[in-house]
C-alpha cells in the first residue's frame, strides 16, 4: 500500500514526468517518505552519497562550508525539485551540505538500490541520466552567471 502510494507520488513528481510506469515502479521500490525539521541536514560534505531527495514541499539550501568560515549558500531548492547529484558518479560522496529551511517533506531514494537497477536496465539508467543531466546543465549555467558576478561593482 505504502509502495503504491509512493509510486503514485514518484510518477506525479515533475522530475519524473513522462517516465514509463514500469520504471516509476522500479524507482519507487527504492523510495521512502522523509521529513526534515528546520535546520536539519539532508546530507553533509564528505558523507557517502547513499540517498538523494525529491522535494515535495519546503526549501533546502545548498552550502559550501570551510573551517573557520561561515557557510555560504549558493543555491536554494524548492518544491518539486531534486536535491543531490553526486550519488550518480563515483566516488559517490557529497561535495556540499544540504540543509532544510523550515520543514521539508521529500521522497528519499536509496542511491545504491537505484544504481543497481540502472546497471541492470540501461534504458532506465539512460532515462534517469537525461533527467539529471538537464538539472546539471541548468545549475552549471546558473553557476557560470553567479561566478561572473554580473552585479558586482567594477574594480
Amino acid at each position: 500500500m505504502e509502495t503504491r502510494g509512493l509510486a503514485q507520488i514518484v510518477m506525479e513528481h515533475p522530475f519524473f514526468v513522462g517516465l514509463e510506469e514500469d520504471f516509476c515502479d522500479l524507482v519507487s521500490g527504492c523510495a521512502r517518505n522523509v521529513r526534515f525539521e528546520d535546520g536539519a541536514y539532508l546530507f553533509r560534505k564528505g558523507e557517502p552519497a547513499n540517498e538523494f531527495f525529491l522535494v515535495r514541499e519546503g526549501r533546502v539550501e545548498l552550502q559550501i562550508a570551510a573551517p573557520g568560515v561561515k557557510p555560504i549558500t549558493f543555491l536554494t531548492i524548492g518544491d518539486n525539485e531534486v536535491v543531490g547529484l553526486s550519488w550518480l558518479i563515483p566516488p559517490y560522496r557529497w561535495s556540499i551540505d544540504a540543509k532544510a529551511i523550515g520543514r521539508v517533506r521529500a521522497i528519499g531514494i536509496d542511491a545504491r538500490c537505484l544504481r543497481g537497477k540502472c546497471e541492470a536496465d540501461h534504458h532506465l539508467g539512460y532515462e534517469l541520466m537525461k533527467r539529471f543531466m538537464s538539472v546539471l546543465i541548468e545549475r552549471l549555467n546558473a553557476a557560470r552567471l553567479q561566478a561572473l558576478d554580473v552585479y558586482g561593482v567594477p574594480a
Binding site: 539550501e61 555560504i72 549558500t73 549558493f74 536554494t76 552567471l145 553567479q146 552585479y151
Partner: peptide, 19 residues
C-alpha cells in the same frame, strides 16, 4: 526575491533570478 549567494542567516531564495 533571490540573491546569488548568502550567509547562513538568510532564509530567502538563493540562485540566479532567470532560473
Amino acid at each position: 526575491v533571490t540573491v546569488d549567494h548568502a550567509a547562513d542567516d538568510w532564509r530567502g531564495h538563493v540562485g540566479v533570478v532567470t532560473t
